[in-house]
Write a protein that binds this DNA or RNA. Structure first.
Lengths: 209, 209
DNA sequence: ACCTGGCGGTGACATTTGTCACCCTGATTG
DNA sequence: CAATCAGGGTGACAAATGTCACCGCCAGGT
C-alpha cells in the first residue's frame, strides 16, 4: 500500500529507498480543516504528502492566516524534515484543505536515509530549494506589489493549483490569506469583474482568463 | 590558513572534515559593495563566510534592494549549497557590505561531504533551517506590521548585527531596504527621535535604547 | 570663496488601504 | 412563514503611505 503511494508520487525514489520507507513508515489521514502542525509544536516525524492538499500559512496577531503555499502529493514538508532532524519547534501552521493522506517517517530514520540513499538526499535538497523559492516569491509580492496585483496573482495561483476556474472561496477568506480586509477585497474583485477578468457569484468566483 | 579560518568560525566541523575542506577549497575576497551573486546566476561553488558581512536581498522592479538578512562569519549561503547541488540558478542578490573573505568549495564535493561527514550534514540542515526562519520573520513583518514597527525592528537588527549604536546609513538606504520612500522614513525617524529612541545626525543615526 | 552634489527636512496632495456602519439577499432552520 | 445568519455591497471617513516640489545645509573639490 505504502509502496503504491510512493510509486505514484515519489517516482524518483530508488527501489531500495522505497523498500526502506515501507518498512518504517505509516499512513496518517487528516480531514478538511484539520490542523497538522501549529506554531511552536515539535515534530516526531517527517511527512510525505500522497493525497489531498495542505495549506501552509503564517498566523497573524489577530488570527489572520497569511497564505504561503500549498503542499500537494509528491511534496514533503521542508520544516518537518529540518526540525525533525534538529528536534526544533516549527514556526508555521499547516492545515489540510482537503481530505489528506500523508506517509509519516520517524525522525530517527533521517540520518540513515540521508547518508545511504542518494535519491532521498536529492529529494530533501530539492524540497528545501523549492520551498525557499516559494517564500521568495511571496516576499516579492508583499514587498513590491499593491493589493490589486497580489489579488490577481493569488487567484491565478488558486485556479492553477486547484485545477478549476470556479473558486469556492469567500471574500473574507481571501482577505485573510492576503492579510487584508474583506471590504478591500470585495472592491478589488468588483473592479476585476468590470474589466472582464472574472464573474462574481454567491459563494464562488468564476475565473475567465 | 584555511584551517585556521575553519577552527575559528566553524568550530563544530569534525577534524577530518576540516582536513578535507582544506585540501579542496580556496579563499576568495570581495570588496565592499561588490556583488557576489546576482539573480539568475549559476553557482559553481558553495561559500562559507569567514570574514566580513554579506547582505542578502531581493531586487525590486525599480532597483530597490529589499533587505532579507546578513551572512556573517560562520554562516554559509543556503542557496549556494542547494543550487550548487542541483545546478540551478539563484533568485537572490548578495552583496558584500564590508571587505569579505569566503571559503569556496567546488560543488562536486557536496555529495561526498554530505554522505561522509556527519557534522557537515548537520551544518547544512541548520543553515537551511535558520535561513528559512529568517525569511519567515521577514514575511511576518511585511505582512502584519506597519512601516513604523518595521523600521524599529530594522534599526534594532542593524545595531545588533553591526555591533554599534552609531549607524552609518542614509535615509534613502533604509527606504530601499524596506521598500519604502525616503520621505516616509525621514518622517518616521523624526517621530522616533521625538520619542527619545534615537538621535538624528548627518550621515548617521545614534541609537539610544 | 564659490559651486556642486548628496543628504535630509517639510508641506501639500494623491492614492491606497483599513475601518465603520449599515443594508440587501439568499439559504437554512424551526 | 418568520427568524436568523453568512456572504457580500457600499458610502463615508480615517490612517498610512507614496509622490512632488522645493528648500537648506554641509562637505569636498576647484
Amino acid at each position: 500500500m505504502i509502496k503504491e503511494y510512493l510509486k505514484h508520487n515519489f517516482k524518483n525514489f530508488e527501489p531500495a529507498l522505497m523498500e526502506k520507507i515501507e518498512q518504517n513508515a505509516s499512513i496518517k489521514e487528516f480531514e478538511p480543516d484539520e490542523i497538522l502542525m501549529t506554531t511552536g509544536q515539535y515534530f516526531r516525524s517527517t511527512m510525505l504528502v500522497v493525497e489531498g492538499r495542505i495549506k501552509l500559512y503564517r498566523e497573524g496577531p489577530e488570527g489572520g492566516e497569511f497564505f504561503m503555499y500549498y503542499l500537494e502529493p509528491g511534496n514533503a514538508c521542508a520544516l518537518s524534515m529540518i526540525c525533525a532532524a534538529k528536534k526544533e519547534a516549527s514556526e508555521i501552521m499547516a492545515k489540510a484543505v482537503e481530505k489528506t493522506k500523508v506517509i509519516t517517517l520517524p525522525i530517527e530514520l533521517m540520518d540513515d536515509l540521508m547518508r545511504n540513499y542518494k535519491t532521498w538526499y536529492y529529494f530533501v535538497l530539492e524540497t528545501y530549494r523549492s520551498r525557499y523559492e516559494e517564500l521568495l516569491v511571496v516576499i516579492d509580492h508583499i514587498a513590491f506589489k499593491g493589493m490589486d496585483e497580489r489579488l490577481d496573482f493569488y487567484l491565478r495561483n488558486q485556479v492553477m493549483k486547484l485545477q478549476t476556474k470556479e473558486l469556492k472561496i469567500t471574500h473574507s477568506e481571501i482577505a485573510s490569506d492576503l492579510s487584508s480586509s474583506r471590504e478591500v477585497i470585495s472592491r478589488l474583485l468588483k473592479k476585476m469583474e468590470q474589466k472582464g477578468d472574472l464573474l462574481l457569484h454567491r459563494n464562488y468566483i468564476e475565473w475567465l482568463r
